[in-house]
């Protein structure tokens, strides 16, 4: 006999199947769409930096976009780290629990609310001219510019977990260090950081995962060239930006190539987030 409990539980279970279906369906659709390009170029698609849509001589490889994605994201992490980590110390240690910490924390959270395209506009009209003025390159577009804007975009993600972890370092350990004559700097470097290390690392892994998939702001600033960048001031393309840029005019093999890039992006971000999640689990 079906009673209300059984019906409700069945309904909940069926709902849970939906997300399983959506996610596995996504993987299947991406793989299905990527088949033509992998049939044509095989595994070489990942390791080739060619990108030639000329009919008859079509040749597609994702390497320059994979490189662009990784390089911009690494630059972003390097720029983000001192800023976000200092903010975590400011909010979670120096001004812990105060009104000022709350205000700073809220302002950092607000960064997460700014749409990607608005970052792109600001980057284009404010940051890019600055890059030109500083003489890094003549147009101001490129990997470095995109990396800076990405760094700002991922700050809230890097900051929030780190701050919580820093707050969680037991007070009695800090007091023990102070009682031995440590200064606050000593306590931060010798007690807080060693104890919060894995959590801090995890938050930057997750922030890195965020940076990999950002699209609009990067598309507007990276310069959109299909080459492996030779220096950080070169222009380039990321996996996300090449999809956004070239999808409109794509069909046939080129469409398949863009989908294959989407699949690779899905796999890479999945791996990075998976590592981050495992680290969190290992900690708890």
């Amino acid at each position: 006999m079906w009673n209300s409990e059984k019906i409700t539980k069945t309904l909940l279970f069926l709902a849970s199947l939906i997300i399983v279906l959506i996610t596995s369906g996504m993987v299947l659709s991406l793989m299905n769409g990527a088949i033509p390009v992998f049939k044509e170029f095989g595994i070489n698609f990942i390791f080739s930096a060619e990108w030639n849509p000329t009919e008859g001589r079509e040749d597609y490889g994702a390497l320059s976009f994979i490189a662009g994605t990784l390089i911009t994201s690494v630059i972003a992490i390097f720029i983000c780290f001192p800023l976000a980590f200092s903010t975590s110390l400011f909010v979670g240690e120096y001004y812990r629990g105060t009104r000022l910490a709350k205000i700073v924390g809220t302002m950092v959270d607000m960064l997460a609310g700014i749409p990607s395209i608005v970052y792109g506009l600001w980057g284009f009209y404010v940051l890019r001219p600055l890059i030109v003025d500083l003489g890094f390159n003549s147009q101001g577009f490129g990997i470095f510019t995109a990396g800076i804007i990405l760094a700002i975009m991922i700050i809230p993600y890097a900051t929030s977990i780190s701050t919580e972890i820093i707050k969680m370092v037991p007070n009695n350990l800090k007091e023990a260090a102070y009682s031995l004559g440590a200064t606050r700097k000593d306590v931060i470097l010798s007690v807080i950081i060693p104890n919060a290390r894995s959590g801090i690392f995890t938050s930057y892994i997750l922030a890195f995962g965020r940076a990999l998939g950002e699209t609009m702001a990067v598309t507007m600033l990276i310069g959109n060239t299909n080459l492996i960048p030779k220096s950080i001031f070169d222009t380039g393309n990321t996996m996300a930006s090449v999809i956004a840029n070239q999808f409109g005019e794509a069909d046939g093999l080129k469409l398949s190539a863009l989908i294959a890039i989407g699949l690779l992006l899905f796999v890479i971000t999945g791996l990075i987030n998976g590592v981050g999640k495992l680290l969190i689990k290992a900690r708890l």
Partner: peptide
Amino acid sequence: RRKIGMVFQHPNPFP
């Protein structure tokens, strides 16, 4: 604090 040592309620060696 170097001249006056302190021991706390709960044992707190640096983990």
